[in-house]
Amino acid sequence: MLQFVLRRLAMLVATLVAASFVIYGALYLAPGSPIATLTGGRTPPPEVLLALETRYHLNEPFLVRYWLWLKAAVSGDLGESIPLHEPVATLIGERVGVTASLVLLTSLIILFVGIGLGIIGGLRRGGVDNAVLLSSTISAALPSFAAAVVLQFVVGVKLGWLPVLGTGTGFSDSVKHLILPAIALASTSVALVTRVTRSAVMEEMGKEHVQTALSRGLPYPGLIRRHVLRNAAIPITTVAGLTIASLIALAAIVETAFGLNGLGAYLVQAAMNKDFAVVQGISLVLVAAFVITNVVIDILYAVLDPRVQLGSRAQ
């Protein structure tokens, strides 16, 4: 087990280094020079040009610049936003909380509502099951940005129950501002988790050992918990983990839709303004979060399912 975890961690580091190279390299290829951004398009005097080049290491070869950037990034220094003259790490630090709480709240909704509805649908036949299927079909078809505008109109404008724009101040106000974005972000994933849970529970219920236990009159709640859910947990973990990992990037859409001051919305803004240091910094943070989440899922998966060959790559 320890060896498995270590191997996954080594792969994680390798992937992160390669990904950071891609992020840095892609923005290095971008047309237009950073000097032009700094000087607003004017041609500066040679000594100013030299000073700027030295300050931002623009006169070094690509690989040296990448190495300097990576070394600084590992120690938490992601460079400086050229238009704003502020450290990228500070800009990220101000916004990471919003994104993290949005993803956390959304994950809770996905887990509780998705798994809950799935279990209900899987155990009950007939009307209840059909209602679960119908609601999950509708919410599966609603992409997060579409769910966002529908919620903004119905709950925000028509009913006036919750705020539809902005981040809010103070704890309870901030949470209030996160409810609709979290529901919008959860809509597709909840449906996915519901469906997988439902079919996994149905499949386990049909297994011989469960049927035998049922006919022998084992207490129902314990039977469901220990024999049905324990085995159904494996596919559920896989799909829930994958969808939760994907939220990290999708948060950008909901944050923009609801005017939340989070990492994703800021990344979109930075991409429009060609603020490369910020794009690099946020992309690196999001990719790292995404990859780390995936590794955690892999490890969790191995813990849940002892049959997983620890030596081979989890599929």
Partner: peptide, 11 residues
């Protein structure tokens, strides 16, 4: 390691 949306934003 790159979610589609993220890669599109970088692009």
């Amino acid at each position: 390691a790159f979610p589609g949306i993220l890669l599109a934003i970088v692009a």
